[in-house]
Amino acid sequence: MFAAGAGAENKAPSPASFFDLQAKDKRHKEVNMSDYTGKVILVVNVASKCGFTSQYKELEELYQKYKDRGLVIIGFPCNQFGKQEPGTMEEIESFCQVNYGVSFPLMDKIDVNGSQEDPVYTFLKSQKAGLLGLTRIKWNFEKFLVSKDGVVYGRYSSATNPSSLAEDIERLLDHA
């Protein structure tokens, strides 16, 4: 497994699948992404003081609509963009619950770019580049859709409304 927070000096082989990774949950406990094998995963770097924060509403709606069919949404709070996620995990969790009724998993706050970049994001970005082939995450609420077999299917900009991903999510849920 590839643990979150491993530094660049770690020369372990690259993971073959999203399910080869680990990350810390909001209580700082290691979670194996292999726990989600066979599920369609939507990974989003989130922030509670961002112009895109209202996307939490659509993310939760997608989660409620498709969770029983195998969709998991995983939110990774990140404070790298305009310091728009300054709170503690308890504050973030409370904000998401009170304002948007978020029930999908929130992980520990991470970096998605730079020397302290979480290995989950290193993997996601290596699998799907953004606009013009750039790999760097540009802002909060960038989204990655991962298929049931751990392959990164798509990458979507912050400006992409979560509800517009429904067709791609259904396609992956219906694929055996």
Score class of each variant (00 low, 15 high):
Lys49Val: 08
Val112Arg: 07
Tyr36Asn: 00
Ser14Leu: 15
Lys67Leu: 02
Ser54Asn: 10
Gln127Phe: 04
Gly5Met: 13
Lys128Ser: 15
Ile137Asp: 13
Gln84Asn: 08
Asp35Thr: 13
Gln84Met: 06
Gly75Trp: 14
Gly130Ser: 13
Ala12Gly: 05
Leu131Ile: 10
Tyr63Leu: 06
Phe141Cys: 07
Ser126Glu: 13
Ala176Glu: 14
Arg136Ser: 14
Glu58His: 01
Cys96His: 06
Leu124Phe: 05
Leu42Gly: 06
Ser54Phe: 14
Phe18Tyr: 11
Asp35Trp: 06
Leu124Asn: 05
Asn10Gly: 00
Thr53Ser: 10
Ala4Arg: 05
Gln64Val: 11
Leu21Cys: 04
Glu85Tyr: 02
Asp174Asn: 13
Phe141Ile: 09
Phe19His: 12
Lys138Met: 05
Tyr56Gly: 08
Gly75Asn: 12
Lys26Phe: 03
Asn113Phe: 15
Gly154Ala: 07
Gln22Phe: 01
Glu93Ser: 14
Arg27Val: 00
Pro13His: 07
Pro77His: 12
Phe95Gln: 02
Lys26Pro: 01
Trp139Val: 04
Ser157Asn: 11
Glu117Phe: 03
Glu85Ser: 02
Glu142Tyr: 03
Gln64Met: 09
Leu106Trp: 10
Ser94Glu: 07
Thr160His: 00
Gly70Met: 05
Lys148Gln: 15
Gly75Cys: 11
Tyr156Arg: 03
Ala129Cys: 10
Leu145Tyr: 08
Gly5Thr: 12
His175Arg: 10
Val46Gln: 01
Asp118Arg: 12
Met89Tyr: 05
Leu145His: 02
Lys39Val: 03
Ile137Gln: 12
Glu142Phe: 06
Leu131Phe: 12
Thr160Ser: 03
Ser158Thr: 06
Gln84Gly: 04
Tyr63Lys: 02
Val112Asn: 06
Thr37Met: 13
Leu42Ala: 11
Thr53His: 09
Leu145Lys: 02
Asp35Gln: 14
Glu61Arg: 08
Asp111Pro: 02
Tyr156Phe: 14
Ser103Gly: 08
Asp25Val: 05
Leu134Tyr: 04
Val31Ala: 07
Ser158Val: 00
Lys143Glu: 03
Ile92Gln: 07
Pro162Val: 09
Glu58Gly: 04
Thr37Ile: 14
Pro119Ala: 06
